[in-house]
């Protein structure tokens, strides 16, 4: 890069930023939305322009090659062809972008789903009043088999025979991202109040979870919670 113009360095930097956020970042995190990538590219461009216009020399180094390329004087061979391609492609890209912004979407609106909304205050910090004994865990597993396994599955993985029609699907307790991150009191809230008990931030409120307080006494629910942790090989989350 030594000896190359500031304009060329800026172009390489923009391409590098795009490649990193579009293709490298998804290797370690969720894919970034294009709107965010465009924002990063915009900020990079602003940085290049600010840096490149700090002095008259740097301004010439940044803009000179661009103006000479656009003017076309003295260009030949590949450079001449590249200039023609840029001049043709830019208006077509602008037209294409305008079209894609206006064309009706064929996909439903994205639904931001809050996986673990904050529980109501009355369900925060409750401790399981049922002793964690082998007998109680065994009874909990029996209750789980009778009431919960049709959806959450006999292996606690959300793959029950009654799960297929529901969106979102029943929770997979074996996944370390579910009950392992939650306290027992949180599960008590979700089991007792069900899908219709979700609070305002718990959108999109499509859970099929029954409101088990209608059918099960509290101590059965606590035993089911113990069984869910024991059966899935997880431990309840704690404040420590």
């Amino acid at each position: 890069m030594r000896g190359s113009s500031l304009a060329m360095k800026g172009a390489v930097l923009l391409v590098a930023v795009f490649v990193v956020f579009k293709f490298v970042a998804p290797l370690v995190t969720a894919p970034l939305p294009m709107s965010l990538i465009w924002l990063y590219l915009f900020l990079t461009t602003v940085g290049i322009v600010v840096y490149g216009t700090l002095s008259s020399e740097s301004t010439e180094a940044l803009l000179g090659p661009i103006f000479r390329f656009l003017g076309g004087d003295g260009l030949n061979g590949v450079a001449k062809f590249a200039r023609l391609a840029v001049l043709v492609l830019v208006p077509l890209l602008v037209g294409g972008q305008t079209y894609s912004e206006l064309v009706p979407s064929s996909q439903p609106p994205a639904e931001n789903r809050t996986i673990h909304p904050a529980p109501p205050g009355e369900f925060v910090g409750l401790t399981n009043p049922v002793p964690n004994t082998p007998e109680n865990v065994m009874m909990g597993k029996g209750l789980f088999a009778a009431f919960c396994s049709p959806c959450h599955g006999p292996k606690f993985n959300g793959n029950g025979p009654a799960s297929d029609g529901f969106n979102p699907p029943p929770a997979n307790f074996v996944d370390p991202g579910t009950i392992a991150q939650l306290q027992e009191s949180y599960l008590f809230w979700r089991i007792k109040k069900g899908g219709v008990g979700l609070n305002v931030e718990g959108h999109p409120w499509k859970s099929a979870m029954p409101r088990w307080e209608v059918e099960l006494p509290d101590d059965w629910i606590w035993k089911i919670i113990m069984a869910e942790y024991a059966g899935s090989g997880q431990k309840p989350g704690t404040w420590e």
């Binding site: 830019v90 208006p91 077509l92 602008v94 037209g95 294409g96 972008q97 305008t98 079209y99 206006l102 064309v103 009706p104 064929s106 439903p108 029609g165 529901f166 969106n167 499509k206 099929a208």
Partner: peptide, 28 residues
């Protein structure tokens, strides 16, 4: 049963979209 899914009633083709795209090409 199923829980909620979506349907989409296809809108008639809106030819003005092509027109606006063409205007953008001309302006650029």
């Amino acid at each position: 049963v199923t829980s909620w899914w979506y349907f989409n009633a296809e809108p008639p083709t809106n030819y003005s979209i092509y027109f606006y795209g063409l205007i953008a090409v001309v302006v650029a």
